[in-house]
Design a protein around this nucleic acid. Sequence first.
DNA 1: GTAACGAACTAACGCTAGTTAGGAAAATAA
DNA 2: TTATTTTCCTAACTAGCGTTAGTTCGTTAC
Lengths: 194, 194
Amino acid sequence: MITKIKLNRKQQIIEKATQLFQKQGYAATSMRDLAGFIGIEAASLYSHIKSKEEILQTICFQMAEDFFQSLDACELANEQADVKLKEAVVSHVEVLTRDTAASAVFVSEWRHLSEPYLSDFLSMRNQYENKFIQILIDGNKAGIFKALDAKFTVLALLSSVNWMPAWYKPNGKLSPREIAENVTDVFINGLKVR
Amino acid sequence: MITKIKLNRKQQIIEKATQLFQKQGYAATSMRDLAGFIGIEAASLYSHIKSKEEILQTICFQMAEDFFQSLDACELANEQADVKLKEAVVSHVEVLTRDTAASAVFVSEWRHLSEPYLSDFLSMRNQYENKFIQILIDGNKAGIFKALDAKFTVLALLSSVNWMPAWYKPNGKLSPREIAENVTDVFINGLKVR
DNA sequence: GTAACGAACTAACGCTAGTTAGGAAAATAA
DNA sequence: TTATTTTCCTAACTAGCGTTAGTTCGTTAC
């Protein structure tokens, strides 16, 4: 009984590649490595994909799309800046934890994209970060947030959260939302008892 | 007039390699690349170094030593936990910004170390993180810090700060100490006006 | 002046990389 | 059953990898 395990070879290739790219890095992962783990020959991969880089592109741009979609799904129009920030970070962390391997690749392997994909990627990332920056700026104008370099602060916030895939265990005690709420609480209210 | 530019070839090799490892990653940087930038043949590198990995080892362990040395130099024995934490982060950021390229390599290329160097490296890193964790635990016991998962919080804090080398410009408006103080202030007191 | 040394060179080694071509086998459709 | 399409194979190619061997050549030491 074989059942229909073989949903889609291409999808399986991308999934395994994601794991290997996370563990070893894109450049240090060979097509023979990848094929071996799947149980076929390296050349056979090319019946399903066009190139090694296509895999990386798929991972990176799929994740980018997920981040945008999740952020857009938050209804933030009528909220205060601190609530907005919290919800935005929760959305971000939920995407991050949904597939930690893909997230890790997204965070640290994008630089191996070639042009014009690299430029596209960076411009999308910039656009995404700007949404967070705007929340901080608005929050400051509204007297809710301190006057800090908004870009700098957002980068610090996202960096702290982007490295979660490296240590997040899906069976841990905390849900993604709880984790995100903890992190944002520290950022918004601080570590200190008051 | 040639003057004595050639301070030390080995040092020059390591410096250039550091830049390339940062920009392209360790695995994606070839010895011919490196040699080309220096202006010699790849084979000639081996008059000065034993292997490609030796360069990575030098960078990673030199940085590790710097971090420990800088942290140990802080006199924290009689301070409150929040001051301790602030000083520890300042020390960390000062090392990070002293050589941003080496720091970036230290942060993201260590996984290409082979055994036993990899294990040594990770155990040192663990030891280092534990010093921060202890500060949080003590601070909580003393009623200064909230009750949070200390390890989790430290990793978030260090991650947020470890990605500074990627965007820090030495000629920026803020000194390393000011940057570190800003970051720690957010972490300790929060983003919110009170 | 000659011996010794350091740093560079050329040439090549063995290996692995990503990828292509062409055909066999297996799965699917008619 | 036959035809078609999908999947995988073997074999091979070119390019590049890290590294070694052996040599040349200028500088330094006696």
